[in-house]
Amino acid sequence: MIDNLITALGAEFVQLSLTPIVIGILGAVACALPGNFLLLRRQALIGDAISHVVLPGIVAAFLVTGTITAVPMMIGAGCAAIVAVILIEIVKRLGRVEPGAAMGLVFTTLFAAGVLFLEMTDTSSVHIDVQHALLGNLESLIWFDAEGWQSLLDPVALATLPPQLPRLAVVLVGIVLFITLFWKELKISTFDAAFAEAIGIRTRVLGFALVVVTAIAAVAAFDAVGSIIVIAMFVCPPAAARLMTNQLGRQIGWSVALAVISAVLGYVFAGYGPGWFGSPYAVSAAGMIATISGIVLLLACLFGPQRKRTGQRAEA
């Protein structure tokens, strides 16, 4: 058993599994953090809308620049997310419709446009397709030059880390900074927008900033892990955390912990789970991580200490 564990965590683990796990964790946490505020502001589906419009964004970036390098793609996706948020606002005002319908209208249209552009232009030679956008390629983010744990201290090997890892790390630091710097403002405007306005917090600007941060998290994570994890991590860990505690600080702590658990367990089950049933193939890690986060949420719905609304009695 111990021997198994040591081989499991040996050089091969560092080379093949360490970076995907770390990237999965970083992506999950980067999405779960802003997800907490979106959840409390009843904007949980903004994450859903944003991750749908990432596809037209990268297609547009490809059409403009003709390359598939990461930076223009991320800029394109970020712009698409912001355009989508503005369009949603316009449709909401113009049509005087509920936000859900406006969102559904905008993101399906943009997604359809993205798919169509993709099909119409000759992108068969390059590596973007709808499946990739949805599923990411977590499993392929391996660290070729690693020879074992000692490679973590070797600058030459470190330089060959998949670029998604440092990128996500930077984004995560940015998100943590945003939340700590504006902690008070975010907290007040989330729970009592009118009061926040009264004491001089610019709630609309802050709300837009939150959406931009969400978009950045979605775009950075999407590149590595695909849209499914992004949507799942925006909603599931914060929702489960919401059922565990009544305090925002603790809720965020819980959500980070649950996101990490989902990412690690999901990756392990996807990579090694089928082997336990005698199948030589791995299943989609992105899908498995989303599934695990759903199971975590289900457990919280059944047993979370704060799962009821205030004043709602347990049904007999």
Partner: peptide
């Protein structure tokens, strides 16, 4: 909605 959507879709992909 967000939870069901993403989790079922993830399971489907698996």
């Amino acid at each position: 909605i967000g939870a069901v959507l993403s989790v079922f879709f993830g399971l489907g992909i698996v």
